[in-house]
């Protein structure tokens, strides 16, 4: 899942300050699940913005809409009939959604209300942690299901650096050393030998080093 969190209020306010008619658009997918931009957060942010404008003695008209998925043109199309009524769009979706909106409605400025952070998993209620960087060449089969690209601060592929200490990374005491985790997991799986295999230098072109990526499924093309 893509995770995001709301931008600082000041930044959001600054971005929309010239406008008094706003579409505030949420997304019922990833950002709902990570409580950053679903119907609830849309409602809250709308409320906050209205309060801010009230305090300034200004009025703001906010239309709250939460789309099923902001990164699909069909869902984004739902705004078409009403987009002319607004001066700006504030999107609470991830960057994909913001761009889809901006690409569809070229006459209207679209601003992000959240910072898209990472692809992560839910560790517990209210906690999400980075798990994947989308490198395009998955190594998890070699590393006991723990990704060194996403979870090692230095993206090392052949064991920990000297900064590891008692299983923790040197950047912060609450960050696990990915390679310690990998070693423990391989041991538990009886696959210690894997650890000794040298991984060759990674080809980062598939990770975006070769420019923007795209998937084309020819069988699905219409």
């Amino acid at each position: 899942m893509i995770t995001a969190e709301q931008k600082p209020l000041k930044e959001i306010i600054d971005s929309i300050s010239p406008y008094e008619k706003i579409f505030l658009v949420g997304c019922n997918e990833c950002v709902t699940v990570c409580a950053a931009g679903g119907r609830k957060e849309v409602g809250l942010l709308a409320s906050v913005l209205r309060l801010h404008y009230l305090k300034q003695g200004r009025t703001i008209e906010i239309k709250e809409i939460t789309l099923e998925r902001q990164c699909d043109p069909e869902y984004v199309e739902e705004l078409a009939s009403e987009i002319h009524r607004t001066e700006a769009v504030l999107s609470m979706a991830c960057g994909c959604g913001v761009q889809t909106l901006a690409g569809r409605y070229r006459e209207t400025p679209v601003f992000p209300a959240v910072n898209t952070l990472f692809m992560g998993a839910s560790e517990a209620q209210g906690i999400w942690a980075e798990r994947c960087q989308g490198c395009g060449d998955c190594l998890l089969g070699l590393t006991g299901g723990i990704c060194p690209v996403a979870r090692c601060s230095k993206h090392l592929l052949n064991g920990p650096c000297g900064g590891t200490s008692h299983g923790k990374c040197e950047i912060a005491p609450d960050v696990d050393c990915a390679w310690c985790l990998i070693w423990e997991r391989l041991k538990a799986l009886g696959l210690e030998k894997r650890y000794e295999e040298i991984m060759e230098a990674k080809d980062w072109r598939s990770a975006g080093g070769g420019g923007p990526r795209k998937i084309v499924r020819k069988d699905l093309l219409l």
Binding site: L51, L54, K55, Q56, G57, R58, T59
Partner: peptide, 14 residues
């Protein structure tokens, strides 16, 4: 409340 302190007229309007 700050919304009332700032500008009562516009508050009434809204």
């Amino acid at each position: 409340s700050p919304v009332k302190q700032m500008n009562t007229d516009s508050y009434r309007q809204t």
